[in-house]
Simulated assay, not measured.
Amino acid sequence: MASRSYGQYCGVTTAVELIGERWALLIVRDLLVGPRRYTDLKQGLPKIPTNILSTRLKELQEGGVVRRVPLLHCGLVYELTPYGRELEPIVLALGRWGFAQMGEPGEGDVVTADSLTMALRTAFRADAAATLRPADYEVHVADVVLRVQVDGDALRIAQVEPAGRPVDPKLGTQASTAGDPGIVFAAGPGIRRLISGELSPAEAIDREVVAVVAGDETLLERFAQTFAIDPGAALVA
């Protein structure tokens, strides 16, 4: 557990002492995508000092949130314990809550594969997806490429390496994904304007917020229906 103590006997206090230290929740966020080696975590959190990453991992292990285990072909990796995985709905809810105040990116702000994966999981509307036909997207944001597959209320997201094949985050190896995506599109941070509903798919294309590279352009409409966060809703009591 982190060395800071608030001196209060309360569940919220205990939670903050476990995961409230700087960077701790972002480590949890990335581990919700899948097990990670130390170097993977450092790469996904480029601004975290090495000593702080080591300290946070030690604290999270002592708190029963994270464990270190061997994984085939990867050596030792960090993963969430069952107790740690219970944080998933909390992290997704925090992502929706924070979406309302994101604004424009600051200088030096980056998008990582894990942060974009969790952003899409945050915005995923399983109820809407269940009423739509399956869809297969390839999403490019900055240097990150994700293969996003939706089938009913099931969502699968895999990072795509430059070679063009998705990587299975649980195995650390390339995963087979049959066929080409239905649509390939590229965007910058302005993709949040599509997800928030501020721009329709047609407007996002017209304003060059999104560029369809290949495939069926009409699938962008389905994407907008499937991944949507109303920032105003996060502020309603």
Rank of each mutant, 00 (worst) to 15 (best):
R29P: 06
L87Q: 09
F124E: 07
Q101R: 14
V66C: 08
V91R: 06
V145T: 15
W97V: 02
E79M: 02
R67M: 09
A130D: 10
E86I: 00
L60S: 09
G108T: 14
L41D: 06
V33G: 01
E104W: 10
R133L: 13
L25P: 00
P35D: 12
D143K: 15
L132S: 02
L53A: 10
L45V: 10
I52V: 15
L31T: 07
R36T: 01
T50C: 04
P49K: 13
V150P: 03
P49A: 14
L57I: 08
R56G: 03
V141H: 01
L120D: 03
L57H: 05
L45S: 07
V77W: 00
I157M: 05
A130S: 15
G44M: 09
Q61H: 04
E86Y: 02
P70A: 14
L60Y: 08
G20H: 10
L116N: 11
P70M: 10
D114G: 13
N51L: 11
N51T: 11
V65C: 05
P89K: 05
P46H: 12
P70I: 09
L76A: 09
V160A: 01
T117E: 14
V150F: 04
R29V: 00
R147F: 01
Q43V: 10
M118S: 03
V150Y: 03
M118I: 13
V110W: 08
Y78Q: 01
G106V: 05
I27G: 07
Q61A: 07
L71H: 02
A24Q: 08
K42S: 12
D151C: 03
R156K: 13
L155G: 02
A154I: 10
Y137D: 03
E88D: 08
L31Q: 06
L120G: 04
F124D: 08
I52K: 15
L71R: 15
G108N: 13
E21D: 14
R96C: 06
V69L: 08
V28H: 10
A128F: 00
R156G: 00
V148G: 08
L94M: 15
A24I: 04
S54D: 12
A128T: 15
G106D: 11
Q101I: 11
G95C: 01
A135G: 12
D153I: 00
V66D: 10
V160R: 03
A158P: 00
A123T: 04
V145H: 02
D143S: 15
R156S: 13
I48Y: 01
V150H: 05
Y83G: 05
V144M: 04
